[in-house]
Amino acid sequence: MTADGTTLRGADLSTVREAVASGDPLPGTGGFAGEIDGRLVCDVLGREPLYLDAASDAREWSFDPTDLEEPELLDAGTVVEPDGDRRRVWSLPDLSPETDREAAVDAVRDAVLTSVREPDSDGLAVAFSGGVDSAVVAAGVPDVPCYVAGFADAESHDVDAARAAADAMDRDLRVVAFDHDDIERAVPEIVRATGRSNAMDVGIALPLYFVAERAAADGYDRLAVGQGADELFGGYRKVVDPAEDHRVEADSVRGATREVIGSLPDQLPRDVLTLRAAGVEPVAPLLHDRVIDAALRLPADLLATEAERKVGFRRAVAGVVPDDVRGAEKKAVQYGTYAARELDRLARQAGYKRRMDDHVGQYIDALVAGDA
């Protein structure tokens, strides 16, 4: 049991019991983890991170790795039996592509709209970058405020895109402008919360942290995010022609997309822990089981082509968000907000030059140690 007495998050006991018994990887939840009937469990994508204490023989565990002496992330899809035996119970299903393209898009539309409309608006805000993913999430909760982060001394891509999208959708947008002092303050907090100090993870986490921190200061305790759509629906360039792209091992669009989905269990703990450290609980409607199921059934040409990515997803949300927003391309959050650029600038100003090996990582380590 954790310090706050919580033993299971994300689903009710009966649903998880049935999922353990049947091996159903998509039992209709948004992810779950915790202790049930003496077992520790973590869903198929690790949407609710759970940590074991590798230094303890007493099977100590927590949702917060900072509670433990040597935290070890439990693998997604795993059940740990009372005797300590670990077994992989859930894996992503290998679903055949839907041959009726219209039906495939309709299934995505139904799953996505059901999921984004499900969250209770009370205490909820939306992380809003102006791209189609966050716009769809925002469309599901039309009365809540939207937040975007960007570096203070420049009009970043994400702020520009968010303003245009918010105007088109008639939404309340709150811009969180962060500066170098904010970055220097936040980096050690993010590293302590997530246990990650590499430049990529920290750069991604920074704008999430600033948005969540401002939303929490404004009185919101939950933040809806668009995480998962790029992975599920073919949003990455590397899935377009995987046979020619060294970044994936698969040689088909569907295979590469599945490979990318498989990266979520490593990414999600960073985002979840960052948001919680900033004072909000994440809400990720596009990672619900029903959305995953619909995405896994999309044929290749409704995932990514040379002309377009997230093809089926964009078609599914026609009429839900304005066409200009639906078709917009966006940069990765660390670049669209200038978080990565300014982290690099701070590293160089502190004497960590680009010719040095992992100069930004060395700067992050120095910040955490208080030596920068």
Rank of each mutant, 00 (worst) to 15 (best):
L13K: 15
V20C: 12
P27K: 08
P27Y: 10
A33S: 15
E35P: 03
C42K: 12
V44L: 10
E48F: 01
P49V: 01
L52T: 03
D53W: 05
D53N: 11
A55N: 08
W61V: 02
T66G: 13
T66N: 13
E70P: 03
L73I: 04
T78I: 09
R87S: 13
W90M: 06
S91E: 15
L92P: 14
P97Y: 04
E98Q: 12
D100V: 08
E102T: 14
A104R: 10
V105F: 11
T114D: 15
P119G: 02
D122I: 00
V137A: 02
V144K: 07
Y147S: 04
E155T: 07
A166I: 02
D182H: 08
A193P: 11
A193F: 06
T194V: 01
M200H: 01
L206K: 00
Y209T: 00
G219K: 11
D221M: 00
A224K: 05
D230G: 05
D230H: 09
G235C: 12
Y236K: 10
R237D: 13
K238C: 10
A250E: 15
A250H: 12
S252F: 04
G262A: 11
D266V: 06
L268R: 05
A278T: 00
E281H: 10
E281F: 06
H288S: 07
R290N: 12
D293I: 00
D293T: 06
A307E: 14
R309A: 00
A316R: 02
V317M: 10
A318T: 10
V320Y: 10
K330T: 01
A332P: 04
Y335F: 14
A340W: 06
R341Y: 06
R354G: 07
M356L: 13
D358P: 07
H359Y: 15
G361F: 02
L367S: 00
D371S: 15
